[in-house]
Design a binder for these strands. Structure first.
Length: 509
RNA sequence: GGCGACGUGGCCAAGUGGCUAAGGCGAUGGAUUGCAAAUCCAUUAUUCGUCGGUUCGAAUCCGACCGUCGCCUCCA
């Protein structure tokens, strides 16, 4: 895995194997999340799935920062309590995670639930001489940390900042707030330095320490957090405990708005240009994720994100999501054929817990032999810095091998479920189930993703009625009527697929 | 100004010293089909921003240049 700290790929050697502690910087919950916020959660969710599959026991923490200047500002603007905004936006964030299949998180600690730990942490830093108080504020003295700047590769001297609004109180411009004194009307907590609230950064140090300990294995976040956020976390934790905070630092690439107008819109900063090329952000008016999920699906978004290596920039465009949908549809079709032939739902196939258990003996079967080799390629790709893009390419190869097997043996619903060819199909399906589960894909059938359960049921029955009527017509060689049904359905975005085993249907985007 | 990333076929995207440069979308031809769709088969980059250099050998290393983007500002 690539370690941002050393700028090299390193062998993952957990501190206390088989346990792995993993921390991802979550959101400050002051507004609805946009697609860019999902990059980290999706890749880390996938990493955890893969590490578990590889035999590790992973504890994954994602923080919720629910006290912050932006939240205070929002609270004033909307004239409602900060806590209410935090609760609403946290719910929005979690709902989005759920839609994208991010369900591996073990702890979601909130900053406001850890005030005691935060205060203790700051007090300890002050006792050890790394922090100083100034007029109710407490600052971390960057010059006291010999390692400061290592992570983001910058020297204290090279930093140009003017110190911001607290410039007058700081000993050096690069010093940052651990605790901020409260002004009238602001949410505040008691502390040895008077009423106030934590600065940014400290909540992550305090909460990761509380849950994962002084030194843990993996810490991640977007590239934009490397400085100052992670640099400061690292300084606080390292100095407080006299031990390195994290063994492996991971940073995902950022998402960029590619096709103007669709996500971006214009921000004040960009108002004088036509292009909206740039990092996706709230200030650029990135749209709410929930709308996007309704328009596309959570699965498409997840697939879209995984299609690119996590350290690369992803250029966002809704056509990219459409393309992801096209790719996914090919898998969905195979799953239908799989169910027809084997009588088993792909989505309900049991997945082995670990890669050792999932190992298959090809028993001299040519198709199986190929699939086992592809499985190895998938795992090798994931072993090499979680290369999901490369891993996905083997999924397409696996899909083709599976369809070829189906075609070659002419497998249909009428095939004997006892035949060797069907048994092989089951094994191939099992491999696909296994690997796609590692990526968090295909948790449920596509129809269930777009509508609620009862609608899905009704739609399914209505479609069966139309398909039966068309079959009657075609059996009587009345192709005109048959085609008319098909054309009318095509007009409303439903495609029919005549297979040997019957007619299937699907939605077109 | 400082630090950093990137530039691979029509589009998306792996590969970072050596077999024929993955895979997806798209396109074209074929098998299949009543016709389609789907599926399968085949074709689709002598070439990896440009120019030099290192090397027996580079898309992969080095240098310059061009272009795009990020961080340095409490953005995932």
């Amino acid at each position: 895995m690539y370690n941002t700290l050393t700028k090299t790929k390193e062998l993952l050697q957990p501190i206390n194997p088989p346990r792995i502690g993993m921390y991802l910087c979550g959101p400050t919950v002051y507004a609805e999340s946009h697609i860019g916020h999902m990059v980290g959660p999706v890749i880390f969710d996938t990493i955890k799935r893969f590490l578990r599959y590889s035999g590790y026991q992973v504890t994954w923490v994602v923080n919720i920062t629910d006290v912050d200047d932006k939240l205070i500002a929002k609270s004033r603007e909307r004239k409602i309590p900060m806590s209410q905004i935090a609760v609403e936006m946290t719910a929005d964030y979690l709902a989005n995670l759920r839609e994208l299949g991010v369900n591996q998180i073990d702890f979601l600690p909130r900053a406001t639930d850890h005030m005691e730990q935060i205060v203790d942490f700051i007090r300890k830093l002050q006792e050890k001489g790394f922090a100083y108080e100034a007029d109710g504020d407490v600052f971390f003295e960057v010059a006291k940390d010999p390692h400061y700047g290592q992570l983001s590769n910058r020297s204290i001297d090279s930093m140009q900042g003017d110190g911001g609004e607290a410039a007058g109180k700081k000993r050096a411009a690069g010093d940052f707030a651990l605790w901020k004194s409260a002004r009238a009307g602001e949410p505040a907590w008691d502390s040895p330095w008077g009423q106030g609230r934590p600065g940014w950064h400290i909540e992550c140090s305090a909460m990761s320490h509380a849950i994962l300990g002084e030194t843990f294995d993996i810490h991640g976040g977007g590239l934009d957090l490397m400085f100052p956020h992670h640099e400061n976390e690292r300084a606080q934790s390292g100095c407080c405990h006299g031990a390195p905070m994290v063994k492996y630092w991971m940073h995902n690439g950022l998402m960029r708005a590619g096709d103007k107008g669709k996500v971006g819109g214009k921000s004040d900063r960009e108002a004088d240009t036509d292009d909206v090329v740039g990092k996706i952000s709230r200030s650029r008016g990135a749209g709410g994720l929930s709308d996007l999920i309704r328009r596309q699906t959570g699965e498409r978004i997840r697939f879209f994100l995984l299609r690119t290596h996590y350290r690369s920039t992803i250029v966002y465009g809704e056509d990219g999501l459409d393309e992801a949908g096209t790719s996914l549809a090919a898998f969905y079709r195979f799953f239908e054929r799989f169910a027809e032939v084997t009588g088993q739902s792909f989505y309900e196939l049991p997945a082995p817990e670990t890669r050792d258990q999932g190992a298959i003996d090809p028993r001299g079967d040519e198709a199986l032999h190929e699939c086992v080799a592809l499985r190895d390629r998938f795992l090798a790709a994931m072993d090499d810095d979680f290369n999901t893009a490369l891993a996905i390419s083997t999924l397409f190869d696996l899909l083709r091998a599976a369809n070829r097997h189906l075609d070659k043996h002419d497998l249909t619903a009428a095939s004997s479920t006892e035949s060797p060819a069907v048994e092989t199909l089951r094994v191939i399906g099992g491999i696909l189930r296994d690997l796609t589960a590692v990526l968090g894909l295909f948790r449920k059938p596509p129809l269930d993703q777009t509508t609620d359960r009862s609608d899905a049921e009704l739609t399914s029955r209505l479609m069966q009625v139309l398909i039966d009527l068309r079959k009657d017509a075609r059996d009587k060689k009345d192709f005109a009527t048959g085609d008319r049904i098909r054309d009318r359905l095509a007009e409303i975005g439903v495609a029919l697929l005549d297979k040997k085993e019957g007619t299937l249907w699907e939605r077109k985007s």
